Amino acid sequence: MTGIDSVQLERVIVHKVGNPTRGEELKLSENPLSLNDPIVRNLLARYFLAPVNENEQYQFTHISDLDLNEVYHYVKGIFDEPKQFALQSAMLAQFLYNKSTHVRVKEGELYVAHFSNVPFGTEYVEAVGLFKSETKETFLKVFPHGQSFEVGAEDGIDINKLDKGCLIFKKERENGYVVCVVDQTNKQNDAQYWVTDFLQVARSANSYHHTNAALGMCKLFISNEMAEKFEVNKSDQIDLLNRSMDYFKTHDAFKMDEFATEVLHHPEMIETFTQYKHTYEQAKQVSIDEEFDIHLSAVKKQERFFKSILKLDKNFHVYIHGRKDLVEKGYDEMRNMHYYKLYFEEES
């Protein structure tokens, strides 16, 4: 998250949340942290907020009534009556404890924080943060002992590795607030209790969401689906990946028909891509508009996954950034091996 230095950490309380199926307890704090040390206050703010991507936004949801979403209800109580902060935080901890029954859910500390002066677009707003630390690291501590030094080991939290987080901006209350989510420990959907069971949030269908999802779809189509349906080699795939990324970098808006014509060209491939879009949306449970404004932050995020590297056995890695017409593939019958020819004007 950008602009962390402007944020004021008003109050924070810590509760211990275990996994009830393992007999672990819920231990509630009565009072917030003192936060008398400004260094600790600033370290906590950075630990909580640095991993947050403010462009990737969610909103609280509920199948029938938004106010029946427990986290939404308790956070709204903090915004409406800050004096109830400790009570509402205890309700949040209790609810998380009730949802921590998956076998992979680890015991950890739940931090509930109240911020002011949080950057949101062109303004500054209040925000409530929910953060859980599950992973403990072992640190060495050097301390004086007489005229010498000794070294001891202590378990603690790495302030550069937030396990789970949620930042709720005091904006768009009637739509479920604007929510940003961090879940570093369950990226493979092993235990999505934090997002699905506890927070009950859904992605906001904004330009960032559409851009991010469309680029992810393009990469999977070119890398997997296209190779199964058409005769293409790795250099062809890399060329299409490069052309796809160039389209998003050089256009202000995505238009499905325009993209298909400029990047894919061939009618059969365009038809397959159109069909794949519907399959992708169903499998990923996302919706990608036919037209949307391109969000450059999403393009930058996805760019690192668009690898333009042609790997040849264990001997060569060839980076291809464009000009497919200067790459030629062949087969040498004498050597019984494939080869590539690369045409260039000068060596640097």
Rank of each mutant, 00 (worst) to 15 (best):
R104D: 15
A113P: 03
N98H: 15
L66K: 00
I63N: 07
Y72L: 10
V125D: 08
K83P: 01
K83R: 13
T61R: 02
T61M: 10
S148E: 15
E126C: 14
A86C: 12
Y111P: 00
A127V: 02
D80G: 10
V75K: 00
V52S: 00
A153D: 09
L92E: 02
E70I: 08
F48L: 08
D67H: 13
Q147I: 13
V103R: 12
Y58H: 13
Y177V: 06
F115R: 04
T185M: 14
I63Q: 09
T135Y: 04
V71K: 00
V105P: 00
G121W: 05
N98R: 15
E109V: 12
Q57M: 11
E126A: 14
G152C: 07
T135C: 05
G165P: 05
K164Y: 11
K170R: 13
E172N: 09
Y74H: 09
H73M: 08
N186C: 08
D183M: 08
S148N: 14
G108H: 08
H102P: 02
F85V: 07
G129D: 12
P82W: 02
N69D: 12
Q94L: 04
I168A: 03
F139V: 15
D155A: 09
P51I: 11
F120D: 14
Q94C: 05
G146T: 15
A113D: 03
L140D: 10
L96C: 05
F48G: 00
P82E: 08
F120T: 06
C166H: 03
G152E: 15
Q84Y: 15
N98K: 15
F131S: 00
E56Y: 08
E137K: 04
Y47R: 00
F115N: 09
L130Q: 01
V128C: 07
L92M: 07
P119W: 01
D155M: 08
P51K: 02
D158Y: 01
I63A: 13
F95Y: 15
N160F: 05
G129C: 13
I159D: 00
E70F: 06
A93Q: 04
V182D: 04
D155V: 07
H62G: 02
G146M: 11
G156K: 02
I78D: 05
E81Y: 13
A90C: 11
K141C: 12
F95K: 07
I78T: 06
T135N: 10
T138N: 07
E174V: 14
L92W: 03
V71C: 08
F149H: 11
Y74G: 00
L162W: 03
E107F: 06
N55P: 03
A127S: 09
Q184E: 15
